[in-house]
Write a protein that binds this DNA or RNA. Structure first.
Length: 815
DNA sequence: CATGGCCGATGA
DNA sequence: TCATCGGC
């Protein structure tokens, strides 16, 4: 699964905002429409145009009034306004709805924008190859699909069937995978349509940039394959500026300094030449992309790393006084509060930082942008009021306050503000702090004392003997580990020897606030549970052995939704990403694993395989480090080391990763979550299959098929699982027998048999974890009244020559 | 006055 | 940490 042989897909929703409006208002269907915002002035600015309206010459960059001239019957639904700003929340929600469908097909999904997502389906393709004979793939399985460089898809399929015998350049193994990928993408797009009613287009290639490039070649509601041997055909006429990252100033300088304009011309330069003309990094990037190579991995990211809102304050609305500034900061802060509230419910996370940014008019007339950040204190109440007041502080600070006039505390600002924005980011997972809180509660009164001790340690620069190893809470912490074991394995475990230090988030407000910043910086370094799993998991046994010499570093992970960053990482972020991909790949290699219900039970059986030797060696390895922690920084590192490296390790029976005991809970939940998702994916596949047969049956007997369609599509997902309830993880949720005593789950309201209750709670735990992994595990739902998909093979005139007519590739793109 | 409001990445 | 860029 080398980077060059991936199957990467870009899914792009067709004129998304228009589709959302059409779904919400049936009157708009089939009519020419454009979505506008701020309609008062010249009919508002157009932000989306549907294809009916495009055919009549309406485009973006037009005002509503212009569109009306071009197309008098055009409908102009308007983006609602909230607090004086355009409110795009309904489109955001729609985007999430779509992404949730996509996510059922692969966890390796990167949401690139509100309506776009990259999918790495390399693994699913390999899986499908085991059961699907590519020679049986035909155009009926690929409606609305195209292969670049071919006049018809059939010719490309024929090439694959012939193993590309006609052409020397033909990379059979790769083309075969793209073809199978295209079959999967057809299913994905069908599922999106079935479940949401939205159409989308897709590009299928071996990397992100190419997938993005070809996605736009056939729209709407179409998908395009880019076989390797067609890249040069594409590049011959492709403007360099159409390639992602080259659309801006950098692209301009590349074109100017090299005196080129087409992508293919970039191939005339050596890597060295490109590196000297630009810099090393850009040089190799250009060299690679000129040959269709882009190694950028698809990141597993569902949620945005930041949530922000801003407002352009042009002309008269520019801010000149303090009241205006306050008013807008309050509105922006309130919007952030609203969105954070929703985000916390959906994603179980909290931001650690806010940034306020603004632009002001300089004396010379030029605009100047600035931004200032604030890290939330532990006891900050994250509300609009706080955002507003902190933002005000930051703005005032960097603008040197208000200008005073005539003794009166006047409200004139030093310079007018033309743009204002607040955003929050650096998210931290709530489940982690909740778990920590739970453990703290378990420790009882000791927790608060521990906190003060820790504060002293972190702030006490010179004192090296106060390591965490020798304080009195060691015993209690051992009990805490037992507690974790008992909760998740319902079994007694032997008392542990090594201490487990739990980092604490909850502050004791009665304590002095002096050291708050020190504490905050300690928390800066705190990793999410999942990050710890990943970073520990990516160490092989050999690495652990090596760590006898050098204490293990614990790189933070920036791929989880918390968006952790790390400066002291030994691993590049792409390496970490690869590890995520691998762990997901491991899960995908085991589709039958669904049958094994309780990995927790299995883990219990094998949990005795604790490697005491390794842990002892690790303990030794850390000693010299402990002895040398004079500086505060070292002391902090030491705390991290203690909290992250619980010293007993074992091998996960599911994925063979070496784990530490504190990762037990998280790791088993992780596997459970992955299996659960796989089950969902299978459900989607079965649904699609079922629906296809239903459509076929419809031809023969329309009445009967309607009944069947109703029967299959209106069933609740849980009921659908009944037939294989014994082997299914989702069987946790199914009440098998009415006579069995049940208990109502406080979390989801479902009735669950008492016997299965603990497993049910585990399920919720897994769900929470799943959320923290950006992999939501909401059961698939098929609307019963959604329009059935009509299959239609593209009736394109079949030409003899394989090379396409030399129409400029640019002409495929909308301006 | 006139793409505005997003988001992510990067380099110093 | 902040400024700037790129793209939807």
């Amino acid at each position: 699964m080398e980077q060059e042989n991936r199957v990467v897909v870009l899914i792009d929703m067709d004129c998304f905002y228009c589709q959302v409006e059409e779904k919400l208002n049936l009157d708009l269907r089939g009519k020419p429409i454009a979505v506008v915002q701020y309609n008062p002035w010249k009919g508002g600015g157009i932000i989306a145009v549907n294809y009916v309206a495009r055919a009549m010459g309406v485009s973006r960059h037009m005002r509503g009034d212009e569109a009306k001239e071009k197309c008098p019957e055009i409908q102009l639904p308007s983006v609602p306004c909230l607090r004086g700003k355009a409110d795009i929340s309904k489109y955001r929600d729609a985007g999430i709805e779509v992404a949730k469908v996509l996510q059922k097909f692969t966890a390796l999904l990167e949401r690139a924008s509100i309506d776009e997502a990259y999918l790495d389906i390399t693994r699913p393709v390999e899986e499908r190859l085991k059961t699907l004979n590519t020679n049986l793939v035909n155009t009926d399985m690929l409606p609305n699909a195209y292969a670049l460089g071919y006049d018809s898809l059939a010719e490309f399929i024929q090439d694959v069937h012939n193993c590309g015998a006609d052409s020397i350049e033909f990379d059979y193994e790769h083309a075969k995978r793209l073809l199978v990928g295209a079959v999967i993408v057809s299913e994905i797009r069908a599922a999106v349509f079935e479940e949401t009613g939205y159409t989308c287009s897709a590009g299928i290639a071996h990397n992100k940039i190419l997938a993005k490039l070809v996605c736009g070649m056939n729209k709407p509601n179409k998908q395009t394959i880019l076989p390797k041997h067609s890249i040069n055909i594409l590049y011959r006429t492709l403007s360099l500026k159409k390639v992602k990252h080259l659309g801006g100033k950098f692209g301009d300088t590349v074109c100017e300094t090299l005196k080129i304009s087409k992508m293919s011309e970039l191939q005339n330069f050596t890597e060295k030449q490109l590196q000297t003309k630009f810099d090393e990094k850009n040089g190799t990037w250009l060299y690679n992309i000129a040959r269709g190579v882009d190694l950028e991995p698809v990141q597993a990211r569902f949620n945005a790393k930041s949530i922000g809102c801003c407002k352009q304050l042009r002309g008269k609305s520019a801010l000149t006084d303090l009241d205006g500034l306050k008013k807008w900061l309050r509105d922006l802060g309130d919007e952030i509060e609203d969105r954070l509230e929703k985000d916390a419910l959906e994603n179980n996370r909290t931001p650690r930082q806010m940034v306020v940014s603004f632009t002001t008019q300089l004396p010379d007339g030029r605009d100047s942008g600035s931004s200032r950040s604030y890290n939330f204190a532990v006891d900050d109440e994250l509300c609009g009021e706080l955002f507003c007041s902190k933002a005000l502080d930051l703005v005032m600070d960097s603008m040197e306050g208000v200008k005073l006039k005539d003794g009166e505390p006047n409200r004139k600002l030093k310079s007018t503000i033309k743009f204002l924005g607040i955003s929050v980011g650096k998210f931290e997972d709530n489940s982690e702090s909740k778990k920590i809180k739970k453990i703290n509660d378990y420790f009882g009164a000791g927790a608060s004392k521990d906190m003060t001790e820790k504060k002293n340690i972190t702030s006490d620069k010179g004192d090296s003997k106060k390591t965490l190893a020798d304080n009195s809470k060691s015993k209690k912490l051992c009990n805490g580990k037992d507690y974790i074991f008992q909760k998740f394995f319902h079994a007694d475990t032997k008392p542990a020897k090594n201490e487990l230090v739990i980092p604490k988030r909850n502050d004791d407000s009665t304590e002095a606030v002096k050291n708050e910043s020190v504490l905050a910086s300690t928390l800066d370094k705190q990793e999410s549970f999942f990050a710890k799993f990943l970073n520990n998991g990516l160490k092989s046994k050999e690495d652990i052995d090596k760590s006898k010499i050098k204490p293990p570093t614990t790189p933070t992970c920036e791929v989880v939704n918390c968006g952790e960053n790390s400066n002291d990482s030994d691993y590049s972020s792409s390496t970490i990403n690869n590890e995520i991909n691998k762990s997901i790949a491991l899960f995908e290699e085991d589709p039958e694993g669904v049958a094994r219900v309780s990995s927790m039970r299995e883990l219990l059986k094998t949990s005795n395989a604790i490697n005491e030797d390794t842990s002892d060696q690790l303990e030794e390895a850390r000693e010299p480090h402990n002895a040398d922690n004079n500086s505060r920084g070292k002391s902090l590192d030491n705390i991290r080391g203690n909290s992250n490296n619980c010293l007993e390790t074992f091998e996960c029976p599911d994925c063979k990763k070496i784990l530490t005991i504190d990762m037990f809970e998280t790791h088993s939940d992780y596997h459970l979550a992955l299996r659960l998702r796989e089950e969902e994916r299978q459900q989607v596949r079965n649904e699609i299959k079922e629906r296809k047969t239903v459509v076929k049956n419809e031809i023969g007997n329309s009445k009967r098929s309607v009944e069947k369609s109703e029967a299959t599509s209106t069933k609740k997902p849980v009921e659908k699982l009944k037939h294989d309830t014994t082997s299914s993880i989702a069987g946790f949720l199914v009440k098998i027998d009415n006579t069995v005593p049940t208990e109502t789950c406080a979390e989801c309201g479902k009735k669950v048999s008492v016997e299965k209750f603990s497993e049910h709670m585990d399920f919720h735990e897994a769900q929470r974890l799943s959320r923290s992994l950006n992999m939501k595990s909401t059961p698939g739902h098929f609307t019963s009244n959604s329009v059935k998909r009509k299959k239609k093979s593209p009736a394109s005139p079949r030409k003899k020559n394989k090379m396409p007519s030399c129409k400029s590739i640019d002409s495929f793109f909308k301006s």
